[in-house]
């Protein structure tokens, strides 16, 4: 298993963002769904090693990130796109991706190729020399995805990766996710259930810091059948039905 979470809780003062989550994930694309404030981002930040858990244990890629040395080993094999991407506006796309490649200790002999490949994979080859300040929101998001994948990570964490992407870009992005999911663990937090249906082999739906549902997209669709839950698409109906049941408890 690449991700093993046991009794994971994260509190901010009195607010409990993640409330005792147990999760084991191997290779594949895993979708994290849920309404605003459900705890998806907090859970992803803990797995990204940028936020310590309040209680519970975390093992990532066979390492314990609570130990500084092991945390470094995890970070070399980690790709992370946070919900709000910070960037230096005067960097070009290539400089931005190269900076992260160097921080992630991509070997010098592979550096140029790794950067070029990452930029091409997100469809920014034509803008490789463009300054970040000149890019649109969708292009910036793709540059953010490029920095996350430049080290060919074994654990890829993406928080709202398709925000700002147009439909064609989203289709290409889902294809990229499936490619990575063949050998790596990819966790995608999103509000867009169609992304989950198209790219994820498995999905979890979070509600108030807990995992209210875990299964395949087909199983989530099954929850919506005949339930009368709101939603235009089958996945949306399943989402609404599971969420409605969780709220009723």
């Amino acid at each position: 298993m690449n991700v093993e979470l046991s009794g994971l809780t994260r509190r901010f003062g009195r607010k409990t963002a993640v409330a005792g989550v147990d999760l084991s994930l191997g290779p594949g694309v895993f979708g994290l769904l849920g309404p605003n404030g459900a705890g998806k981002t907090s859970l992803l930040r803990v797995v990204a090693t940028v936020l310590p858990p309040t209680t519970g244990t975390v093992r990532l890629l066979g390492h314990d990130p609570a130990q500084a040395r092991e945390r470094r080993a995890v970070r070399r094999r980690l790709g992370y796109l946070p919900q709000s991407l910070g960037y230096y506006p005067n960097f070009t796309v290539v400089e931005f991706v190269e900076y992260f490649a160097l921080l992630k200790e991509v070997p010098p002999g592979r550096l140029a190729r790794a950067v070029a490949t990452a930029v091409e994979r997100v469809g920014l080859g034509g803008q490789a020399r463009a300054k970040l300040r000149t890019l649109s929101g969708g292009m910036l998001r793709r540059a953010g995805i490029a920095q996350a994948i430049v080290n060919d990570p074994d654990l890829l964490l993406l928080d709202e990766p398709t925000a700002g992407l147009d439909p064609e870009q989203r289709v290409e992005f889902r294809s990229l996710l499936r490619e990575f999911g063949a050998h790596a663990t990819v966790v995608v937090s999103t509000h867009l259930v169609e992304d989950v249906g198209a790219a994820c082999a498995e999905v979890a739906l979070m509600h108030e810091g807990r995992v209210a549902f875990r299964g395949t997209p087909a199983e989530l669709i099954g929850h919506g059948e005949g339930s009368g839950a709101a939603g235009d698409a089958p996945l949306e109906r399943g989402y609404s039905a599971v969420l409605g049941a969780a709220r009723a408890r």
Binding site: V50, R75, G86, Y87, G144
Partner: peptide, 15 residues
Amino acid sequence: QSPFDESERATGPRL
């Protein structure tokens, strides 16, 4: 001041 914040913090020991 880092302009990159969390994406940078999730990298290796060079930072």
